[in-house]
Amino acid sequence: MTLQVTGHQWWWEITYQDPSPERVLRTANEIHIPTGRPVRLVLNSTDVIHSMWVPNLFGKRDLLPGLQTVIDFQADKPGVYRGQCAEFCGLQHARMGFLVVAEPPEAFDAWRLAQLRAAEAPKEPERQRGEQVFLRSSCIMCHQVRGTPSAGRVGPELTHLATRQFIAAGTLPMNRGNLAGWITDPQSIKPGANMPMTQIPPRDLQDLVSYLEGLR
């Protein structure tokens, strides 16, 4: 199985390659792999040099702009492994973590199928309002939720955001409070990160967070 990993300041973009284009899956900061199968990570960087390191699975390999490097590895035991950028890459080098989630092949296949689906249209009125907030505010300049008109590609893909365990590249556990804090003032959590501070009225923020929390 081949995954494309692209380093960004300061998050990881992961693309599951597939011969048929509709099965190509783009996600961020959380790599799911099946256990007991060899996996190849093809590494590249869009900005500076990063280095991929999961101490319990494999040693470091640099992500170099203009060059392609690979990591071949296999996870034998299911589990969640933490990884981190190991090459100094600027202001937020310290907060550029990610997770490798190794799960049995069946669970992995189910996960992959679920991730390939576009986001469901929200049913609750609160989440419907939240979607509207998402679509008319600055979020969509950088982010994408498949199934909506949003198409930003420079930030992490959000279609199944709520299935991930962390936000902001392994920085904050995924929950309502952290989401709201991250949206309003990312610069006090991760100074220098490319996510700007956003001014959203409290009511709208509540709806937006509800919407994001439902992106499963």
Binding site: R82, H93, A94
Partner: peptide
């Protein structure tokens, strides 16, 4: 050996 990288300004 516990996995702490260099040049990080903080850790969790």
């Amino acid at each position: 050996l516990w996995g702490m990288p260099r040049r990080i300004y903080t850790y969790q």
